[in-house]
Design a protein around this nucleic acid. Sequence first.
RNA 1: UGGGGUAUAGCCAAGUGGUAAGGCAACGGGUUUUGAUCCCGUCAUUCGUUGGUUCGAGUCCAUCUACCCCAGCCA
Length: 555
Amino acid sequence: MAEADIRPTNFIRQIIDKDINEGLHTNIQTRFPPEPNGYLHIGHAKSICLNFGIAQDYQGQCNLRFDDTNPEKEDIDYVNAIQQDVSWLGFNWNGDVRYSSNYFDALYEFAVELINKGLAYVDFSSKEQMRELRGTLKEPGKISPYRNTPARENLALFEKMRGGQFKDGECLLRAKIDMSSSFMCMRDPALYRVRFAHHHQTGDKWCIYPLYDFTHCISDAIEGITHSLCTLEFQDNRRLYDWVLSNISIDTTPHQYEFSRLNLEYTVLSKRKLIQLVEENHVDGWDDPRMPTIAGLRRRGYTSASLREFCQRIGVTKMDNMVEMSMLEACLREELNADAPRAMAVLEPLKIVIENYSSDDVENLTAPNHPADTSKGNRIVPFSKEIFIEAEDFREEANKKYKRLVLGKEVRLRNAYVIKAERVEKDEQGNITTVFCSYDKDTLGKDPADGRKVKGVIHWVSASQGVAAEIRLYDRLFKLPNPAAEEEFLGCINEQSLVVKQGVVEPSLINAKLSMPVQFERTGYFCKDKDSQGDKVVFNRAVGLRDTWAKMDQG
RNA sequence: UGGGGUAUAGCCAAGUGGUAAGGCAACGGGUUUUGAUCCCGUCAUUCGUUGGUUCGAGUCCAUCUACCCCAGCCA
């Protein structure tokens, strides 16, 4: 069998296989349930690929459901951005977008059911009182004075809550479970709070809103979710999830399984921290190319396929993890090495004058768009007497390890001729301003006839035909592998995470489309940024090429 | 002895009683008009600890250790 047939397995898929084999389910139903209080990040991509991937592979369905029970923190802009990101990642949700708020009426009725069963009560204790009565991790909590209110009374109180007769935060509907449970979430958790807030979906219809633990399990059940997948920190909450479903009248019983969330080196993946980066302007918005958001990675130049591949490679387990950035970068490089057309761009231009080249000539050279894929065709690259090369590709003197242009020595211009550096011109400060060279006209597309060996190859752009471009070089946003472990994560922001270069690119790049990846030979993978306008062309570096030269002892 | 979880290479991660997959990273060598790519090779006598069961243990039992999560009217 082909390797492509080997599906990645994980403990969740094994549970599903077992459930199917035992006849527990014939159809698999999952859901991706983001709260619309921020943009999706690469950690969400892991969950999206898991949930939608399982639905695809088992011929099931995956719903997109906004878990919108906290209107004060949520926004319709996030609802829209999230849908765009899920679509861009390449997934289609089952039917219409769902909202937990679609179920507010049903949720209310289930709460009434619990009240009638004597399993929920309205509590007027203050936050402080409740915290005191809750006990600690090692000591049991104490019974609230409101815990034994008769059901009939609780029902009337709850109706008054809904009717707007209590102030914000004045009272709560609580489940009556076990104040001495070792699971803190079972010590009579809050089910509903009073909140006079406008909701992006339900407007001002409600002034009470259900909490996560009450809402999520019921929403899953209503949608017929079979496997409800979430992250490890909800493991204790599973007891409450099951308690709610076993105490209300509902047929389906979804089961919750937890996997570990993604941690990526040199970035942060907590909603709170990402919001802070945006709101305090440490980055330029949610789609800043340095952000680990889907929108940021997309703008940076990451493809959806490379993100999906990444999610496949990291796997799904219950182990705490910290994935190296190189894992992500390898996924992009692997795809783009095969697919991205090549071009030449000089990030830090140094002028070269080829003295024995006739001054009015502009020669249209032909260069392949891909060195290993001729089906990608060729492009025209203009060559002229004056060109730019990378400043770091010239040295007045160097040891033999340096395979670039050195005074008195030869080097190959990529897709063009062999040139030799004859002399340099410097300004008053001693900076090299121009290198005067000669070229060998018999080296286009072939080695020197006399058998001379020219070891280096450097890229270049015609000075007269090249196009000025702003080139943005991105690096990791933080200086430390685990900024979240710091007392103040903002303290380790990498000030060099964005370096802007005024470069020059070959003219074929004028036609580059936004976000279409291209390899600038010898420097990395780039894409045109949305900030490009009219004459101003901007390119983002998504990731550099592997660079063994940078790592070796260069003498 | 609060409870819930997790320990396999630098980082991910397979492994489900039969003798340690794979990927990333790293390191050698070859090819190369990208110091890229590609190719070839190296990289766990050992699975957190210590015991035990077994012909046989990463897998089973016990013990200890380390780390993560839980005391929101957040999700």
